[in-house]
Amino acid sequence: MLIIGEKLNSSIPSVRQLINDKDAPAIQDLALRQVAAGADYLDLNTAQGDEVVNMEWLVRIVQEVTDKPLCIDSTSAAAIKKALETVKGDKSNVLINSISLEKKRIDEVLPLVLEYKCPVVGLTLDDNGIPKTAEERMVLSERLVEILTKNNYDLANLYIDPLVLPQAVSHNNATMFFQCLTDIKRILKVKIVSGLSNISFNSPKRKIVNRHFLTLCMAFDMDAAILDPLDRKIMTSVITNDFLLGKDRFGKKFLKAFRSELLED
């Protein structure tokens, strides 16, 4: 499964502080530690603060130390545009997080996705908000696929995020999410990504809930997750699940992780 490292996010107070202080060494350290832990993408979010200016800085200093592809996490077309302009190397590697069926995002962010031919996260959300049922989310997913197809977009680059809602709010939220996973993958044959942690909102022992939710999602063939790769227990779950799900030939990665002492009981 593809791992998008979530640490460089301005909604984390300590990281927001580092961004505001322009503490390049600390940010670069956080980037490199996520890469070492197995992140395939590094998520960058500067929404809390002077977004466009901070995004330009963040992209630049992260790319000084690693060429891991970046995931630009913003609702602002201006911030995404600035990030794309700043990125060195292959800009078509940048994962744009995200578009949705909201008119503003379609009008402003989608053109950037098409221009740079980037992979993109598509949220099942429109101007009426987040739908309550799996069926309605399927409808939104179909609409998004239709719009992208019309624009000759390569659907292999699309990651739909069916938006997890807290299990504390409705005890059917996780199963509804699994339903979305199954239907979207079967009918539309596109990839699925999730941020996971919303599932445990307002529950105790959130990490346990997140980890088990991740395992279940992987059993439903989820393609990518936005998570904290520095959390050894969740990475242990990812690596072990890939092994058990037959996605790790001969357990090569599992055994390598064992020898590198990355696996935690």
Binding site: F250, G251, L255
Partner: peptide, 13 residues
């Protein structure tokens, strides 16, 4: 004991 059976078999493949 550094490598496991899966790795030996993979190498053979």
């Amino acid at each position: 004991g550094e490598y496991f059976l899966g790795e030996l078999i993979m190498c053979g493949e």
